[in-house]
């Protein structure tokens, strides 16, 4: 699905990622953990194609194609999805209108017919149940005035509606109370499938209580310094990131 080799990334002349290697197979769930400032968010954004980040070295191959040659929207249309750590407010753009435009772009890319307003609403109502979102959100501007938890749910709603092949979740757990976290995690669990892969980026282990990863990686100082199974997350929670350094 995704293969990253020796990836180096800079922003504003400062190197943040200093040689990342990562291989994500179909249906796998990878957790990337690390302290603040280790480069976790940079990794998610460079994969999605944020224009501020510059790849100085290395490669990322997504389904056999050079990811960095694809424009942002093309990556999305090919099934790559990023749930933002800080979803952006889009004043004046109605959430339902935005979601419909996005869903129809995906459908076009797959050679499917676009959904009309009625069909889309039916489709979306189904998806909204999975994240326990109220229908009133559809008529509000995208993310504007949403609480932190509502924004994260809206991200997972988009994830459900766009049904990507590779979903990258950037700190989706941060700022969520325990109930919201459970809802979001259940949403993700329902979307797990042998064809869909996940990269969960998180600072804390707590989300991994609800979503069990196949692999856990520790990112520190722009490099993956340790990889292991799901138990690694518990060990990190117990001993802290200092322990990895000492090792």
């Amino acid at each position: 699905m995704l293969e990253i080799k020796d990836l180096h990334v800079s922003i504003g002349g400062t190197e943040i990622l200093k040689g990342i290697d990562l291989k994500v197979g179909a249906g796998e769930v990878h957790a990337i953990m690390g302290p603040n400032g280790s480069g976790k968010s940079t990794l998610t954004r460079v994969l999605a194609g944020h224009p501020s980040y510059i790849v100085t070295k290395g490669s990322a191959t997504y389904e056999g194609k050079d990811l960095f040659q694809m424009p942002v929207e093309e990556r999305a249309r090919q099934g790559l999805f990023l749930a933002f750590q800080y979803p952006i407010d889009i004043p004046g753009v109605n959430n339902a209108y935005f979601l419909k435009a996005a869903v129809n772009e995906m459908r076009k890319a797959k050679g499917l017919e676009e959904l009309d307003a009625m069909e889309f609403l039916e489709f979306l109502k189904e998806k909204m149940k999975t994240v326990e979102m109220d229908e009133s959100f559809l008529n509000r501007p995208v993310n504007e005035g949403f609480s932190g938890g509502e924004k994260k749910r809206n991200e997972i709603l988009q994830l459900a509606a766009l049904s990507p092949k590779l979903a990258i979740l950037d700190e989706t757990d941060s700022g969520l109370d325990i109930d919201a976290l459970k809802t979001v995690a259940e949403g993700v669990n329902r979307l797990r499938s042998p064809k869909r892969s996940f990269i969960l980026v998180t600072h804390y282990q707590r989300m991994l209580n609800y979503i069990t990863p196949d692999h856990v990686h520790v990112l520190m100082g722009g490099k993956i310094v340790l990889s292991g199974g799901k138990d690694l997350a518990f060990k990190l929670e117990e001993k802290g990131y200092e322990w990895v350094k000492q090792d």
Partner: peptide
């Protein structure tokens, strides 16, 4: 950032 957000959902620039 707003342009990026929309593009990341498959919407052209």
């Amino acid at each position: 950032d707003a342009i990026f957000y929309l593009r990341s959902r498959g919407i052209g620039e």
